[in-house]
Design a protein around this nucleic acid. Structure first.
Lengths: 113, 113
DNA sequence: TTGACATATTCCCATATAGGTATATATATT
DNA sequence: AATATATATACCTATATGGGAATATGTCAA
């Protein structure tokens, strides 16, 4: 098998750096494709294709305005990523005691040095 | 061009669901490969290969103990993901107070909508 | 040393890319 | 209707993938 499709979920979709840039760019306000092209210095077809992926996974929303397609970031779709990363927050934010960590892990490996 | 390598950064590495499972599994305590194989029900070579990717991007650390290789999640490497998703936090309206939010972010920006 | 155990690597393969170029579709303007 | 503008799609290609199977490497035990 090959890699999972970029459209399979938000994790795969945001793995591409340009798509993250686009999401950043569209976070504060909706913008037409041409603005993204100019703002990020990408080829127009490339932007359209990235937007297609982002749209398929719900990371952006679109509405038509004349001949312009206005895209904006749907922050809600980023939440699963945030939630997942958040589960590791405890390991760098406030450090948990090793004893409690070990107890929660239920490891059978000796925790020796 | 093809997609960026899974080993190019943490974003690409965690796009694979199994790798996220492995990171979850290794978050609380270091474990040998065999535990992951049994715990997650994956093929051994598959686990080794996933660990190789995770290791290449610094998402896991290893040490040898006899014939066992003990892996553990390096939560610090997940931080960039968390940081990026965090920039969208304000758009979905969590329960954290804006004051605390600003303090944690260390932001100098006005906290406007 | 030989054998068992634990993990890593290699090889094969079907597949989905991302970029570039060209073209198609849709809407507005005249 | 004809044309310009805005965006989307089709086509091509090199490439890295993840799974499976087989094998290699490394370590301990007898």
């Amino acid at each position: 098998m090959a890699r999972a499709a970029t459209t399979s979920d938000a994790f795969n979709a945001v793995a591409e750096p340009r798509r993250r840039e686009i999401l950043n760019y569209l976070a504060l306000a909706e913008r037409p494709v041409g603005d993204i092209v100019a703002g990020l210095g990408l080829e127009q077809p490339s932007v359209s294709k990235h937007l297609r992926v982002l749209r398929d996974v719900g990371l952006v929303r679109v509405r038509r305005n004349g001949r312009h397609m206005l895209y904006r970031t749907n922050a809600e779709a980023i939440r699963p990523l945030h939630d997942w990363t958040k589960t590791f927050e405890r390991f760098w934010g406030h450090q948990l005691s090793r004893i409690k960590e070990r107890a929660e892990a239920g490891s059978k490996e000796p925790d020796k040095e």
